[in-house]
Structures are given as C-alpha cells and as structure tokens.
Design a protein around this nucleic acid. Structure first.
Lengths: 192, 192
DNA sequence: AGGCTAACAGACAGGTCTGTCTACCGGTGT
DNA sequence: ACACCGGTAGACAGACCTGTCTGTTAGCCT
C-alpha cells in the first residue's frame, strides 16, 4: 500500500474526481481527455493505464454517479422516518436538494445516454441504474402496502425522471417541490 | 417561384429534413455537417448559405421539433373530446404513440440541451418550448376547473417529461401508458 | 546498490469537425 | 446578350480529439 508523492489521493482518484466534475458539467463528449489530464494534474499515460478507453472512464463516472444518486435517494428516504409510506415521499427531498445544488444539470445518466450511441455500454449501464432504483422503490411500495407496487413505483420514478430531466434547463427547486407534492398525492391515492 | 431541378423540395427543406432525421437519431453533436451534406445531396456552400453556423441548423431543427411535438399534443387532446378534463388525459396519447414510433429516442429538446453549453441559445429555445407547452396545459387545467391550474399543469408536464426522458433508453410503451394512467389519477384528484 | 513500479512530461500520428474558398453549371429576367 | 441567382463539387485551413510512444523521475523493496 504505497503512499506515493501524489498531492491528494491516488492518481486514479484524482482522474475520477476531475472527470466527475467536468463530465457532469459539460457532458462526457464535451470534455476532451486532454482537459481531464490538465485539470487533474496527471500524465496522459497514467490516465490511459487506468482507463484504456475514454469509454471506460465514462462508465466509471456513471458508476460514481449511481452510487451518489442512489445513496442520496436512500438517505433521504431514511430521514423521512420508519414508515415506508413516508419514505416514498421523503426520497423526493433528494431531488429537492439536488435542484438547489449549484451547477445542477439534471440527470447524468439521461444526459450521457442522450449523447451516446443506442445499444452501447452507456445505455446498458443507464438501464441497469434505472432498473435498480425502480426495484428499490417497488420494494418500498410493497412494504407500504400498495395494491400495485409496480405501478406506484413506476409513477414515482416517472416523477423523479421528469424532475431530473427538467433540471437540465434550470434548477428551479419549485419543480422538485411540485414533484414531492405530487408524490404525496399519488402515494395517498395508491394506499387509500 | 422557380422550380429548380432539385429532386424533391427546395434545398433548404432537404437539408432540414435530413438534419431532423439525423439529429434526432444521434444528437446534433453526433452528426457532422459533412454527413448532413452527403445524405441530403446538397453542396456544402448551399448548407452554409442557409445556415451560416451549425447552431442555426440546430435551432431550426428544434423549431421543427417544437411544431411537431406541440402539434401532436394538441391533436391528441382534441381527439379526446370536448371536455378539457378528458383532453388533459388524452394528450398523453401523443406520448404513447411517440413511444411506439420506430426510432423513438426521447425528447429532442432534453437530449439536445444535455449536450449544449448552459446559457446558450439551445437552452433558451428549450426553456421557451417547455414554457409554451406548460402554459397551454395550464389553460386547459383552468378550463377544466382545477383549483390550482398551475400546479396541475406542473404535475402533468412533469409526467410528460419523465416519460420522454425515459424514452432515451427504451421506447417501452408501458411507460407511456403508466404516465397516462397517472395523469388520470392526478386529474381526478385535482378536480374532485 | 540495484531493480521495480507508478507516475510525470510531452511529442506525435491519424482522424474528424467546422467553416471558407474557388470554380463551375443552368435556368431566368432584362 | 448577359448578368444574376441558386445550386453543385470539392479542396483546404485550422482546430480539436483520441490514443500511442519515448524518455525521465522518484519512491520502495530486497
């Protein structure tokens, strides 16, 4: 476990941190490898050692996004209390605070998928992410006692995606608040 | 009103038709000007005469998308009958048939905005489009007698955007059907 | 001391993209 | 007759982007 002389973290981490920031701000396609190299203070050969293709870096970026966003959703749900019913609504606080965050640009998966060729690995990873999230919401809906957990989960993830998509344009927190309010309406309708 | 010898329509139309098709399939950034030229059978100078910058072509593309999509929404609403309440739900048929269409890739505006620099003309045009659509839905909600037309419109457009965004991945019509069903729930909740 | 590893620094090749420019062609109005 | 207009055809410059390659530096382990 060498310490190296690298300023902060391993080279790989610095590359990934920088890529995360730049890719999210301008889209993977809008950021050249040279820019990532310059901003992360890493040598080109080092980047290509860790990520032989730019696509590999993009996928690693998506994995990090997945962790962050899914984590935020679960944390927001957890903070809403122990009742699955409240958690279904509470997870929308992740959307609200994402919208408030500076430099918010919508859903990284959707944005990246939009500029990637259909049927490629980026699409596959995005579908996987959405599937995992929806499965988690479905389980929550089931525990909440929804008659049709699949439907409720579909409804709520549609809302989340809608809120995220609008975020590409303006991070108006009102959108996220409206989404949360809508979620409450839908949850009430599904459980009563 | 010259006839020219061009095979079908004016050069400008052919360019725009081709751009529409290619831009929607691969995203404006994923299509080079040379490809548009080759596929539309037009000279490079001609393209640059009508659209001095590629951005101009992209904006013209978005205008065409706006006409097509907003038109489809209004047509779907009209076909749902005379009751504004039914029209609010009926407009989701535009989403359903869009999902069924071959080569469906989600919302052209969102996809284009995702790969365009924030604050640019593409973003402005997208915001304008979304605003116009939401204003129309708001008016519909008002005529339907909603207590809070703004809120209902926000909810329904969130749903539409969510359905459109998911479409970047797979054109699963079930998503659109779920969106329509959700719309009915929300409309009922808002009007009763 | 010497070898190994990870990283740095940067030149370079090959391709693609936008946008400009020159030269030509054919129909139309004057 | 002749200029004009809209179009074709394609070379070209300049930028940028990915990915490879050579050479160097510094720490760690034996």
């Amino acid at each position: 476990m060498p310490v190296h002389r690298t300023p902060a973290g391993s080279a790989r981490d610095r590359i990934l941190d920088t890529a995360f920031r730049l890719f999210y701000a301008h889209g993977p396609r809008g950021v050249g490898v040279d820019t990532v190299i310059a901003e992360s203070g890493v040598a080109k050969a080092t980047l290509y050692k860790h990520f032989p293709r730019k696509d590999d870096l993009v996928l690693a970026y998506l994995d990090r996004v997945d962790q962050a966003w899914f984590g935020a959703l679960r944390a927001a749900a957890r903070e809403a209390g122990d009742e699955p019913r409240d958690q279904l609504v509470g997870m929308f606080d992740a959307l609200v605070s994402a919208c408030r965050r500076d430099g918010y640009h919508g859903c990284a998966f959707i944005n990246t998928a939009a500029e990637s060729p259909a049927g490629g690995p980026v699409h596959a990873r995005t579908v996987e992410h959405k599937t995992v999230v929806r499965a988690w919401v479905t389980e929550l809906a089931r525990r909440a006692g929804a008659a049709d957990p699949e439907l409720l989960a579909r409804q709520l993830t549609l809302l989340i995606d809608g809120g995220l998509a609008s975020g590409v344009l303006d991070g108006d927190p009102a959108i996220a608040e409206a989404a949360k309010q809508t979620a409450r309406t839908l949850v009430d309708a599904a459980l009563n």
